[in-house]
């Protein structure tokens, strides 16, 4: 008797596992299909969006990307790369500095500052875009794509929360130990806390590097409103957004693929830190 019971339990478990595998494969297909479709379309000579596989395979979509001057993909890519690099560095410094100050240093107005940032986060951001553009003009650096950098990292202190969550986990007695050993708060930050927070630093760099690639709203606005900009000055996002009509769908797909490859590679290389950041950060909310 025992054997039968033992078998049926194992059988139920096995079938449950099979069912889960099926569900997971279906989910994977759904999630991966659009990218598969994207890659296929990027090789289609005549863009026929209806069929998955291109009627005729060709490479000239990619060729047009690098040759045509109406769609100077290389310039776009370089512009965005430079902007993303600058934003990554500056934004990480701002975020880590604010997060460290708010998490470990006790000063008057600390709670007030955190509440202020919370409230500011509730306003829809881009209404102020017009004003930012004007402020940049006031400072004389409007028009060019590099004013984007300033807009991206200027108010990055707002996204201090996840880094603060991480700094809170480091125990306070380390600070006291250093103070007794003879270091100042600056030594604590540079020689103790930073070396310990490698995961969160990489997470912040990753996030601040990838966000400029995805933003087209402000770029689109600057492109629209300044007269001196040619298409060579666009960022990738703005450039691709401007390819609207379906006839150039293949070129769009090629452009999209070329953009996604470096970012996705970077992402998988640093995946461990990203997961840690999200799980850690989310837990602290």
């Amino acid at each position: 008797m025992a054997e039968k019971h033992f078998a049926s339990k194992r059988f139920a478990e096995k079938s449950q596992r099979v069912l889960i595998y099926v569900i997971l494969t279906v989910i994977s297909v759904i999630w991966l299909f659009p990218f598969f479709y994207l890659i296929m379309q990027s090789f289609a000579k005549v863009s026929n969006p209806k069929s998955i596989f291109p009627v005729e395979w060709t490479f000239d979509n990619y060729k047009t990307l690098f040759t045509s001057d109406t769609r100077p993909f290389l310039n776009w890519w370089l512009n965005t790369f430079l902007i993303a690099l600058a934003t990554a560095v500056l934004q990480t410094i701002f975020v880590l500095a604010t997060a460290y100050a708010l998490s470990r240093l006790r000063f008057a107005g600390r709670k007030g500052l955190m509440k202020l940032i919370l409230i500011l986060g509730m306003f829809p951001g881009f209404l102020g875009m017009l004003v930012n553009y004007y402020l940049l003009q006031l400072l004389g650096i409007d028009g060019s794509m590099f004013s984007l950098i300033i807009v991206y990292f200027a108010s990055s202190a707002m996204s201090y929360y996840i880094a603060k969550g991480f700094f809170d986990t480091v125990s306070r007695s380390l600070d006291e130990a250093v103070m007794i050993d003879g270091g100042s708060k600056n030594t604590v930050f540079w020689r103790i806390i930073l070396p310990l927070s490698k995961p969160i630093i990489i997470y912040t760099i990753l996030i601040s590097f990838t966000s400029p690639w995805g933003d087209f709203m402000f770029g689109n606005f600057i492109a629209g409103s300044s007269r001196t900009m040619t298409s060579a000055d666009y960022t990738v996002a703005v450039g691709l957004y401007k390819i609207t009509d379906m006839s150039e769908f293949g070129v769009f797909c090629a452009g999209a693929v070329m953009v996604s490859i470096p970012i996705t590679a970077l992402f998988f290389w640093l995946q461990r830190y990203y997961v840690e950041g999200i799980a850690g950060g989310a837990v602290k909310g």
Binding site: S171, S173, L174, E176, A177, M179, I180, D181, G182, G183
Partner: peptide
């Protein structure tokens, strides 16, 4: 603390 020429052992070792 650093000028008082004292040393401290913490509960969680620090």
């Amino acid at each position: 603390p650093k000028d008082r020429d004292i040393a401290m052992v913490f509960q969680n070792y620090a």
